[in-house]
Write a protein that binds this DNA or RNA. Sequence first.
DNA 1: GCCAGGATCGTCT
DNA 2: GACGATCCTGGCG
Length: 200
Amino acid sequence: MLGLTETSRRLNQEFFARDTLAVAPDLINKLLVTVIDGAVTAGRIVETEAYSGIGDSASHAFRGITPRTAVMFGEPGRAYVYFSYGMHNLFNIVTERSGTAGAVLIRAVEPIQGIEVMRTRRGRRTNRELCSGPGKLTSALGITLLNNKESLLEPDSAIGVFDDGRPCGEVLTGPRVGISSATELPWRFFLRDCAFISRP
DNA sequence: GCCAGGATCGTCT
DNA sequence: GACGATCCTGGCG
């Protein structure tokens, strides 16, 4: 697919078909790669949040299957992209076995490849401002509603997540950001002492 | 550097 | 008809 990932392994369905609370921390330190509009961009995932189904009142799937949330109940390893606050696309990866709702929101990545493309898409910015938030990284990586429901598992998928085997730093947990219910659950995962997370 | 306010629309009640 | 899993800008110091 590209030089960067020649020695990397694309995460398969088995990886995503697990407990959302196991997948979310395991995604830290993995590479999120997109090939969109002819441009390759990649970033190292440094911050995620878990959104479950049953019992998680902050999850879109909490009220059951609707046209929007159906993808969260479907096949693991697909993209769930939705539009928020009238201007931002937010990118999630579907988890759990088919029939069980779950997704992991990618909240921040460290820019690795295609940084000039990211700068073009986001405007003139420092590296840490390019992808340090869920709305920012979709913009920088070119992810839109068009990518909703797409598989991340095929060799020619526009979006993929790769493991390059690089050792991971310490992963910390904390409350999720920007929600008004289930605020007590520590389902946000992020790299310790990382300059590229959405908030210090 | 910090904070308040505005932008803007898909989705569900 | 209300409300976000947010980001950017401008004003102030």
